[in-house]
Design a protein around this nucleic acid. Sequence first.
DNA 1: CCAAAAGTGTTCCGTCTACACCCATGG
DNA 2: CCATGGGTGTAGACGGAACACTTTTGG
Lengths: 222, 222
Amino acid sequence: MTTYYSGTPKAYVAVDCIIFGFDNNKLKLMLGKRQMDPGRGEWSLYGGFVGMHESVDEAAHRVLYELTGLKNLYMRQVGAFGAVDRDPGERVVSIAYCALIKISDYDHQLYEEHAAEWVDLDHLPPLYSDHQQMVLKAISLLRKSIKTEPITNSLLPDYFTLTQLQHVYEAILGESIDKRNFRKRIMSIDLVEKTEMIDKITSKRGAALYRFNNNRYEGVRL
Amino acid sequence: MTTYYSGTPKAYVAVDCIIFGFDNNKLKLMLGKRQMDPGRGEWSLYGGFVGMHESVDEAAHRVLYELTGLKNLYMRQVGAFGAVDRDPGERVVSIAYCALIKISDYDHQLYEEHAAEWVDLDHLPPLYSDHQQMVLKAISLLRKSIKTEPITNSLLPDYFTLTQLQHVYEAILGESIDKRNFRKRIMSIDLVEKTEMIDKITSKRGAALYRFNNNRYEGVRL
DNA sequence: CCAAAAGTGTTCCGTCTACACCCATGG
DNA sequence: CCATGGGTGTAGACGGAACACTTTTGG
């Protein structure tokens, strides 16, 4: 071990995961009650410390994996949070990551192990430390990226109806969208393709199921 | 000092500043040669370690102040960089910040003290560690934010011609813009106001000098 | 007198928006 | 048979893009 910077103070470096899911036409956030001091019992994002032999990105993926059993999820850095007293007692700099998961893929056994809950985004409880700021920033980023990146495919199951897709857009943007205009836009980018399957669960008539085709959209706006 | 997290490893936390200026119709980046090991002599962004009694944001402002003598500059977090071996020898997580400064305000005595140089953005030398990635991400952010935030007022002197303003946009966006369309857009948002002053330096005929009025643009697109 | 930069409008085209009715079916 | 959600087209408004000539004056 070299000692180039001896005398310089170090800090704990953590990651916190803002995990979004989509269910019942609502955006949900995965929260848990903190199981360690300080802040035991408060609602909190899932997080963990960055190990010495993993990058910060890897730490975020690891934490998410430990929580959900899922790998290769959409994850994106939200930002570093470094107020002096953001953690009571110790100096912890935390790097927030936003993740999108398909709730249907989530291993439900893990709910109880981690005391995880899906909380409705517009009924958030008070959160530990600066976690609320992290969530707000993540939502703001989501709203921007939904216009240029195909992030919805991380939230929906493999097959879905156009109405479901529209609901995802509406939940993220926080506004309702005209059905005909929405379908026109979606069809003009060739983001999805129709399948032969029909969903009869949510409607009597039945709705065509679509899937994402893996074209990327380049420079497309919504 | 409490010891909630004893056993957890710590890391050095640093900030690095991507400092943009505008001169001679070009975007410039302030670089220096590293004056410490490791990497002594390599081209590098300016950075420093985060102290225990300052937030990460404050550390970034402090580093910028030490370098330029300027306070209250536009600064924006670019992101955290946390590869395991991004710093040779020690584990350093660095948080990059983008700053915009008016080159005319810069105290030129400080150039030599810090061996700072303004380097043309499209002739960047190889940079230390992951600093090039930081720069690329900062440029990408700049391109996005110029459409929604009045960042140009951080790059131009208090009084400027519309042609200068257009050159800033062109330099950041990396493409040329139609003069008439540009002026129409700028006038439709009321971003700037005409003054009685006339600049006779760059043209024989003389160009009207404008200044920013401090309206912010809310939700405006370019 | 001419080179060099400032300044100024119009037309066209594509995109976004608003808007309402019929369809299929399970219960 | 009716309630429920699925599916479809058009017209008007708006904003962005293309485009060229006149003005002023220092040298």
